[in-house]
């Protein structure tokens, strides 16, 4: 464990808590993409299948359970409890355009052709593009609530911190996972224009609005 990975995990946990708080306090999931949240739940489900079989540490097990529970809790809030506030008219990104190619790629490019490894690879590839419906929804509505923009900033920062973690582990532990690194870079690059808007607007106290 290193400081980059720890702060990355904390940023990830913070993002998930911010989203749950936003939905719970405003009693609304307006501006939140249900499709992205569905894909995140799929990412955690396919990545953490070894939760029972492969104990790494109490921290690892605890965080995995928190991530799985919170992702399904978010789906519950969005699609059951506050379903009336789900903005399906603006959440129109075609998920199959992401899931199908990602599934195909995980069969073609992986470290080992075994079920657990292919599912892990699928989850890594899917996570790198899972935010697209959310970014697409913001581009359609032209704006995002401030707390939603904080959620996205924390979520985007987590994988950027993981890239620093991989640099650290490469030099100090000789650890290198090309699939995770490439997907992590793609994932972080997708946030770049959002990061620019967030830093130039939200940090100045303005609301996050996209240039018309």
């Amino acid at each position: 464990m290193n400081v980059f990975r720890l702060t990355g995990d904390i940023a990830h946990l913070l993002a998930i808590i911010l989203l749950l708080m936003k939905i719970w306090k405003t009693r609304s999931c307006a501006g939140v993409s249900g499709k992205s949240q569905m894909m995140f739940a799929l990412v955690f489900t396919t990545r953490y299948l070894d939760l029972i079989t492969n104990f790494i540490s109490l921290y690892n097990t605890t965080m995995k359970m928190i991530f799985i529970a919170s992702s399904y809790g978010t789906l519950y809030l969005m699609f059951l409890k506050f379903r009336a506030t789900y903005d399906s008219n603006h959440d129109t990104f075609r998920m199959e355009f992401l899931v199908v190619p990602v599934a195909g790629l995980s069969f073609l490019v992986n470290h080992d052709f075994s079920p657990l490894e292919i599912l892990w690879t699928f989850s890594i590839y899917l996570e790198s593009v899972a935010i697209l419906p959310q970014l697409f929804m913001i581009s359609k509505t032209g704006e995002a609530e401030t707390i939603t923009s904080h959620y996205l900033f924390a979520l985007g920062s987590y994988r950027a911190l993981y890239i620093l973690n991989w640099v650290y582990r490469f030099y100090f532990e000789g650890f290198f996972d090309l699939i995770a690194v490439v997907a992590g870079c793609v994932q972080t690059v997708l946030y770049c224009d959002f990061f620019y808007l967030y830093i130039t607007k939200v940090w100045k106290g303005k609301k996050l609005t996209l240039p018309a």
Binding site: N60, F67, D112
Partner: peptide
């Protein structure tokens, strides 16, 4: 195939 890197990350 080379052994997959250990999966100790979240």
């Amino acid at each position: 195939r080379v052994n997959p890197p250990q999966k100790d990350e979240l």
